[in-house]
């Protein structure tokens, strides 16, 4: 819809306001993280003391490590299960319970986190009563919960990619003697790999960010980073959280910017190749 006229003054001012709205709070928070004073009202000069305080805060470091571990493991399993689900929905035409399966994939996307969290906790409690597993709730149960809701997102991403892919590529491979599993590994997975990678990143972020489901499914021993942050900020502003936020948001933004720059460059490269070839 690009037009020769370009956006009007009204539209331009809304755009400016909108982006200011999105970014000013983050930037202010980042600025405060370098404030020497513990009080937000006073600018006590530039300092990195909240950063060093953060590095010495064992609780936060441990929580961060736990969160990263859970995020990496759950993203990996969610990618495997989500990809299988996407394959089942687009490439296995008929099987019993397909209707229910489709619903099960879509439901976690719209389910309020409080309900997902509550129901998983009640499941774990009931399982413990019935079969004695899980003995206690902690990293394992959080990981299972995160796999469950992240795999739905990945299934949707993979499904969209598979739906737009020419199915005769896989048929051709099968025609040439590839068995179903070989076809999946030789043809399908390499071609949907970009979607799987972005799915993994999304699952990783979702897990790293989740508070509610983790709160429900965790036990006494394990606190993830969002749980620690939540308990701290519930009481109001804490300067070391400013520093933590700056580190997290800074790292994530940088990572995303680099990733999208790489993607953009490779796209330009292939389109240039196509023109020359």
């Amino acid at each position: 819809m690009s037009s020769h006229r370009g956006p009007s003054t009204f539209i331009l001012s809304v755009l400016c306001f909108g982006f200011a709205f999105l970014y000013v709070p983050i930037l202010v928070m980042m600025a405060y993280s370098f404030n020497d004073s513990a009080l937000a009202t006073v600018w006590g000069g530039f300092s990195t003391r909240w950063y060093s305080a953060l590095l010495n805060n064992e609780q936060i470091i441990n929580a961060a490590l736990l969160s990263l571990k859970i995020a990496a493991v759950s993203a990996t399993f969610a990618t495997i299960l989500g990809t299988l689900a996407g394959l089942a929905l687009t490439r296995m035409r008929r099987f019993r319970g397909r209707f229910l399966f489709t619903g099960l994939i879509a439901a976690p996307l719209v389910m309020p986190e409080v309900i997902t969290g509550l129901s998983l906790l009640l499941l774990f409690v009931s399982l413990q009563q019935l079969i004695g597993w899980p003995v206690s709730r902690g990293a394992t149960t959080i990981t299972i919960a995160h796999i469950t809701f992240a795999m739905a997102y990945i299934a949707v991403i993979v499904q969209a990619r598979l739906a737009s892919m020419d199915e005769s590529l896989e048929e051709a491979a099968m025609d040439l003697g590839g068995r179903p599993m070989q076809v999946t590994f030789d043809i399908t997975l390499p071609l949907i790999a970009p979607s799987m990678i972005s799915g993994w990143l999304l699952a990783f972020t979702l897990s790293l960010d989740d508070l509610v489901i983790a709160s429900f499914t965790s036990g006494a021993g394990a606190s993830t980073l969002p749980m620690v942050i939540f308990s701290k900020i519930k009481l109001g502003v804490t300067p070391d959280i400013n520093a933590l936020a700056t580190i997290i948001i800074g790292t994530l933004s940088l990572g995303i910017l680099i990733a999208s720059w790489i993607i953009l460059r490779s796209q330009r490269k292939t389109s240039a190749q196509r023109q020359s070839g």
């Binding site: 709070p25 983050i26 508070l211 900020i233 997290i248 994530l252 933004s253």
Partner: peptide, 24 residues
Amino acid sequence: ILPFWTSFLLRVYAWIVMLGKTGA
């Protein structure tokens, strides 16, 4: 899209920094 990929909890927290009695 960028804010969507960064921590949701910390972005809500940014508003505590902004809106608090002694906030920005």
